[in-house]
C-alpha cells in the first residue's frame, strides 16, 4: 500500500492527486484471459497511471461492443474481427493495444470420430460459435461443408457425443475438455493459426470519438494494462490469486488448474510473432489479412487505414 502511495506520488505528470475515472468491459466473465487488467487494478498500476478503473462484469449476457456504443464502458476487449465489423457498421473504434497476437481458435475432434485431416470435416456435425468468422474461414479454405451446430458457451454437447467436433480456444475450452477426464492423446486438434487462419484476437478498444478527446489517456490505459500483464507473468501465483478471488466474489466456478493453464497460454499467445517485436502491438500484415478475409466474405465493405485504426494518425497530430 505504501509502495502504491509512493509510486503515485512519484508519477511524473503529477496527476496522481486527481485520478480520471474509466471503465473496462472484458470480452467474457472473469478469468485469467483478462488477468493483466485485474492484476493492474489490484496492484495499483492503473492508479499509478492516473486511472481510477472499474472493470465491469462480463459474461454470456453482455456485449462489450454494445457497452462501448452506449457509453457504459470506456474501454472494451474485442477480437480484431469483431472490432472491424463494428467499424464497418459505422461505430468507429481505435485499437489501443493488441493483446492476443494470434488466433487461439481450434477445432477438436475425438480420435474415434475418424476426423484426422481438415478434409475429414466434410459433412460432420461441428459446433461453431455464432459469428465465428475464423472457423468459417477454415472451412472455406479447405472447401468442406459441415453441419454447423450453434455452439453454447460450454463443451457439454461435445462431451455427451452430440457433435463430432467442437470449437475451442486453446487457453480455455481445450483445457476444460482435458479437465473432464479426456486425455490429450484421445483427441485430434486443429489450430486455425497453424492452418493460416491468423485472426488476432483480444485487443483493447475505445470509441474513436472518445479517443480523440484524450489520446494520452488511452495510451496510459494501454501502457498500464500491458504493465499489468507483465506483472502477472512475472508473478503467476499472485496473479492467479487475484483472478480467482475476483471470480469467487462473482460466484463463478474457479478452477485454479484451469486458470493456471489459461495464464500460461496467454503468455504464449501474447508473444509478438516477430522476434524482438513489442508486446501489445497490432501487426499490420495480420490487420490487412483479417480485413481482406472479412471483405471477401462480405461482412464489411471497407477496411479503415491501419494508422487510423490504431490511432497513431491522431497521436502524431
Amino acid at each position: 500500500m505504501i509502495l502504491v502511495l509512493i509510486s503515485i506520488l512519484l508519477t511524473p505528470d503529477g496527476e496522481a492527486a486527481e485520478l480520471k475515472k474509466a471503465t473496462l468491459m472484458p470480452l467474457w466473465s472473469t478469468q485469467a484471459q483478462f488477468a493483466g487488467y485485474y492484476v493492474a487494478l489490484d496492484k495499483g498500476i492503473y492508479a499509478r497511471h492516473g486511472i481510477d478503473l472499474t472493470i465491469l462484469k462480463g459474461g454470456p449476457s453482455v456485449s462489450p461492443s454494445e457497452h462501448l456504443q452506449n457509453g457504459k464502458a470506456d474501454f472494451a476487449v474485442l477480437s480484431l474481427a469483431a472490432a472491424l465489423q463494428q467499424n464497418g457498421a459505422g461505430n468507429r473504434l481505435v485499437n489501443v493495444a493488441q493483446i492476443i497476437q494470434k488466433s487461439s481458435m481450434m477445432l477438436i475432434a475425438r480420435k474415434t470420430s475418424g476426423i484426422r485431416t481438415p478434409a475429414d470435416f466434410q459433412g460432420r456435425k461441428v459446433g461453431v460459435w455464432n459469428g465465428d468468422l475464423a472457423t468459417n474461414a477454415f472451412f472455406t479454405k479447405y472447401q468442406v461443408r459441415v453441419q454447423q451446430i450453434p455452439q453454447s458457451y460450454t463443451v457439454n454437447l461435445f462431451l455427451r457425443g452430440g457433435i463430432d467436433a467442437v470449437s475451442a480456444q486453446w487457453h480455455n475450452e481445450y483445457h476444460t475438455i482435458l479437465n473432464s477426464g479426456i486425455k490429450a492423446d484421445e483427441l485430434n486438434i486443429f489450430f486455425l493459426d497453424d492452418h493460416g487462419i491468423r485472426f488476432p484476437e483480444d485487443g483493447l478498444y475505445i470509441l474513436e470519438r472518445n479517443y480523440r478527446k484524450d489520446p494520452a489517456f488511452a495510451a496510459s490505459f494501454a501502457k498500464a494494462s500491458l504493465e499489468g500483464w507483465r506483472y502477472a507473468f512475472d508473478h503467476p501465483d499472485e496473479a492467479l490469486d487475484i483472478v480467482i478471488r475476483t471470480m469467487k466474489k462473482e460466484h463463478l466456478p474457479a478452477n485454479r488448474l484451469h486458470q493456471k493453464w489459461m495464464l500460461e497460454k496467454m503468455r504464449d499467445q501474447m508473444k509478438p510473432r516477430k522476434n524482438g517485436g513489442e508486446m501489445g502491438q497490432l501487426s499490420p500484415s495480420d490487420y490487412e489479412a483479417v480485413g481482406l478475409a472479412l471483405r471477401t466474405r462480405g461482412v464489411i465493405t471497407t477496411v479503415p487505414g491501419f494508422e487510423d485504426f490504431i490511432g497513431r494518425h491522431d497521436a502524431q497530430q
Binding site: 456435425k125 455464432n130 451446430i149 450453434p150 455452439q151 453454447s152 460450454t154 457439454n156 454437447l157 455427451r160 457425443g161 452430440g162 457433435i163 460466484h251 466456478p253
Partner: peptide, 21 residues
C-alpha cells in the same frame, strides 16, 4: 444454444444438464 435445450435436441432424449450455480 443453451445446453438445456441443445443437448436433448441433438441427442434426441431426456437429458439432465450439468449442474450450474
Amino acid at each position: 444454444t443453451h445446453d438445456w435445450y441443445q443437448i436433448p435436441k441433438e441427442l434426441g432424449k431426456k437429458e439432465w444438464s450439468e449442474p450450474y450455480f
